[in-house]
Design a protein around this nucleic acid. Structure first.
Lengths: 357, 357
DNA sequence: TCGCACGATGTGTACGCACACGAATATAAG
DNA sequence: CTTATATTCGTGTGCGTACACATCGTGCGA
């Protein structure tokens, strides 16, 4: 392995000079610089990241701003775990991460939490920009302070975020379309169940619905696609009544897609007789969804690997801050298809990422 | 962040003594040891992996023994790339990796290559134990020299391999069963196409076939499942004739599974009219398979993420040798379902690696 | 012509943290 | 008091980073 010392010796300069060239820190004559660069190439020199990390010992202070999770809304637990894992790994690099959780149904709390976060003087921020107007204020604040930020799981256009890490919701919807189309027959009809009303257009719920319909359009497949929308699932018995009556009056509906992570909540309300003959595609591998999948109530789950999203967001930011690696502006996470038969093997990936050697 | 120095100061000992305690290297009195351990716990001390790696700078020499790949047999390119990637990452740890490729159809070459490998005095080995008898000889050799080894992609029981990293072939077959069952109707019949004869029972081809059939048994689904077997695909026109005549005389066959990575080779031989009405499940995301998937010739591909297998094998071994982390005896890689609609988003990491380097 | 200032360029080295080995010290045994 | 044994100390090592300092050459004023 070639070290900086080797390079320095061959170029008849000191290691300090080589270091300047490596990091473009200036103060080196063109001639010397060229000579060193040549030797670097010739010897195929690569910075030893281990030694580099040790030497830098940057004290970085990252903050995250994502929704809090509870038993009712468990989705965000998964990215939070990914963040947690990454956090442990980069800890040795002198990177500290503080999580700030907000109420995903309360814009004011979003702002308040952000202000608390600002007080901690973070060097960078990983955030889920849930509310449109409030996000605009937040970004303004960030830009004034020159704090770089990454959008996680939810994207909003028009900002100077370092990158977006998350799913392609529209494409996820198309995938759901393909799957339901494959496991139903030509004459069968389909149903989209939205669990929220007043969907902001940019939200995944909305995009998935559009992508779903688009699948049939782009492939010239004639399909009757019904839609039903609820304003949350607080009133379960009411929701159940409506769905069941719809399904009873439309016997040709043989496939349902729920473009949110609340898939199992919906399915459980459906009459068992109908459950038995209907194919269901849902999103996200929450524990309840997985349990429904295993019971056969859900046919396919499409996972966005939100654990990985959280994990990657940290790694990407650290790479940017420490190693100046500019990420792609969009880092899509895979659309992972999960069924009863492969569900046992998917979780494994959570343990995967490199052990921080 | 607490360092060894902090601990040492508080315990009134030198850092060397703390280090001994940390690594159970002995030579420390019970009393001192207890005191230090107490402080370690109290301060929640964690070894700084960065500094640790730098200090150790073990010079490890890993070897790999896997089949060579070419245009005809491209499968092993993927694990090799994973190994390559991991190789670069651990390079900074002073770990050197040498690859030894053998002819997967020639047992003698397997042994010869292994002997060459032995001459390089490796500290550990990652291998694909393709041939039964020859593997037994190889393992004997390894054990005499106390060289730890990992089985990659192919498992053989009864050896003291550190672990097995690879797919669950049987379960992969079951998954194929589920998918074909979902996208065909009750009366449709199915076909298994084996591309090799004389299958060793432990090989993935064979296990997948069994798992496929088992899916229908365990779920009490009555299905006519046909099987056809070829001795390699050298004589393509002959293979094509046989398949087409089989499909023409059995019009009820609406689904085909090819339990090997040669899926696209088979499908291309099938008459276009039949292709159009038949669902196909295949294995492995080779470039040709992916291209067939995009053209609609293949409905589902089941990937074993062989890139990750290769990658993991190295990381696992290095963790074992340097950090003494004993891996699980079986590390299954996910059964990833790939369709036309999500193929763009799979293995983001790998594509990046392939193109970026 | 001398002296000095200053920018440009380059040197030398302390530092980050854990590791491990030779040397020193303490303690016990003979 | 010597030898042996058990503990513990002190420090060089791994490699890159970055800052304080040294060196050189040029230009300018007197």
């Amino acid at each position: 392995m070639t070290t900086i010392k080797d390079i320095a010796k061959e170029a008849n300069v000191s290691t300090g000079t080589v270091d300047r060239v490596l990091h473009d820190r200036g103060g080196v004559s063109q001639e010397t610089s060229d000579k060193i660069k040549g030797i670097l190439r010739k010897k195929n020199f690569k910075i030893n990241q281990i030694a580099s990390s040790l030497a830098m010992k940057k004290h970085l202070n990252l903050a995250t701003l994502i929704p809090m999770y509870d038993n009712q809304n468990v989705f965000w637990k998964s990215p939070a775990s990914g963040i947690q894992k990454a956090s442990q790994e980069v800890n040795a690099n002198g990177v500290e991460i503080t999580n700030f959780f907000f109420d995903q149904f309360d814009p004011k709390n979003y702002i308040d939490t952000f202000n608390k976060l600002l007080d901690s003087n973070p060097d960078a921020l990983i955030m889920a920009p849930i509310f449109v107007k409030e996000t605009s204020l937040i970004i303004k604040s960030l830009n004034e302070r020159d704090i770089p930020f990454i959008f996680l799981n939810i994207n909003q256009k028009g900002y100077n975020n370092l990158c977006y890490i998350g799913q392609k919701s529209f494409e996820g919807g198309s995938l759901a379309g393909q799957l339901l189309n494959l496991c139903t027959t030509q004459d069968d009809e389909l149903l989209i169940v939205q669990t929220r009303k007043n969907l902001d257009d940019y939200r995944s719920f909305s995009q998935r619905g559009k992508g779903f319909i688009d699948y049939f359009n782009k492939n010239n497949i004639k399909k009757s696609i019904h839609q039903i929308q609820f304003d949350g699932l607080k009133n379960e018995s009411n929701v159940g009544k409506k769905i069941n009556s719809l399904l009873k009056s439309n016997k040709k509906i043989k496939g349902i897609v729920v473009p949110s992570s609340r898939t199992s909540n919906i399915i459980e309300l459906i009459h068992p007789d109908i459950q038995a003959i209907i194919k269901v595609v849902g999103f996200d591998t929450t524990p309840k969804n997985i349990s429904a999948l295993k019971k056969g109530q859900i046919t396919f789950l499409i996972s966005q690997k939100s654990f990985n999203q959280g994990y990657k967001s940290i790694i990407t930011m650290v790479n940017y801050l420490i190693h100046k690696v500019k990420p792609d502006p969009e880092i899509p996470t895979p659309l992972e298809i999960v069924t009863k038969e492969n569900v046992e093997f998917i979780e494994y990936d959570m343990r995967r990422y490199d052990s921080g050697l």
